[in-house]
Design a protein around this nucleic acid. Structure first.
Lengths: 198, 198
DNA sequence: ATTTAATAAGTATACGTTTGTTTACTTATG
DNA sequence: CATAAGTAAACAAACGTATACTTATTAAAT
């Protein structure tokens, strides 16, 4: 039996992410992907059931996991509030800067109905994506370090600004001056922390 | 000469926004739109050059303007920082709550390459979308009420949390309990303001 | 006051492409 | 040589858009 060519599997994933990052999710077609990965369309269907299956697996297996791991690098849920939040912000910034494809697909996960559904399900059934951060927030709310809120509210306050800043970073990437530097990130992080501390 | 049927023009815009809000931008096709609006596909092309033209006009003329107007209702750039920010947050929440279609299309404006381009151009060439807010922020930075930053950074800190909360509001709309209430919005707004004030 | 001519609005349908996916076949390896 | 991996080509369906025709209205001509 002929063995699977792992390079081809890899090429499918790499090119799919690249096309999404460069041309948008709406401009990714199976035939375009096959051509970009230098394979026959049929080959994609050996590994993936259909386009939806490809996108969801790409999102959940390829991006969500790596994204989570990068975010939590050297993060301990026992950290004090300021240290923990700063660690997360800097991790996110460092990872996204060098992994635009992952960042872009994560952003699509919020708006695209298909990926959103996948994200919700993954989040509910496994209930452990970013679990350390959830416990970190719960503990600090209990301790009285910060005000108690549903996790989604904490997430909006803590993460939406840094993700917006990363987006701004990419929009300024090919402009003369970059306005989103690590210094700016840290100053913004300080403000968010200051606002949340009781 | 046969006069234009304004009801049909209206139906095109209404149904387009509805389809985008309910099924996503990627699921809007010209033929589906024509069927939904109960007209012939050709009729869309009387008013709009092509699909891109339709989407951009829908975004810029129909949504951006109304969205801006709603956000700035009773807002004065001479307001003190806390009053001004709270006014904007409450305006945004009230408007989005009852105009999901506009909110959804605004969100697509950030990720969809096509709409993003339109937004950038509109923002640069006209340079006046949300101009009162920009002047409001500039003044308070000059006064020393808040730290001075590029406008994009202020925007990330001030607006991304409220938009994320609105998103969360819609995700909880058909669940047993709504976690994003006006009370929560105001408490979050307080935290953001507290963080930004010097 | 009625008819008519001109014309843009509108419809039904079909065009050529591109879409996601499949069929029929070939290739490489245990 | 059995078999799954892989290819080239083609499938029906859906896409954005154009064609050929009909309809409703206005303004000029009767």
């Amino acid at each position: 039996m002929r063995p699977k060519d792992l390079d081809k599997e890899k090429a499918i994933r790499t090119m799919a992410l690249q096309i999404i990052a460069e041309e948008g999710l709406e401009n990714l077609s199976m035939q375009k992907l096959a051509k970009a990965a230098n394979i026959s369309p049929r080959t994609i269907y050996i590994k993936y059931e259909n386009k939806e299956d490809l996108l969801i697996k790409l999102f959940v297996e390829e991006v969500l996991g790596a994204y989570e791991q990068a975010t939590l690098k050297d993060f301990r849920e026992t950290m004090d509030f300021e240290t923990g939040v700063k660690k997360i912000w800097l991790n996110l910034f460092a990872y996204c800067k060098t992994n635009k494809e992952a960042f872009v697909l994560m952003q699509y996960g919020k708006s695209s109905p298909l990926l959103n559904k996948a994200f919700q399900e993954k989040n509910i059934t496994e209930g452990q994506f970013f679990a350390p951060i959830h416990r970190f927030l719960k503990r600090h709310a209990k301790n009285g370090t910060i005000k108690s809120f549903p996790i989604a509210v904490h997430r909006a306050l803590l993460f939406s600004p840094i993700l917006d800043l990363v987006n701004e970073y990419f929009e300024h990437k090919d402009r003369p001056r970059q306005i989103v530097t690590e210094k700016v990130i840290l100053e913004c992080c300080d403000m968010v922390i200051k606002g949340m501390l009781l």
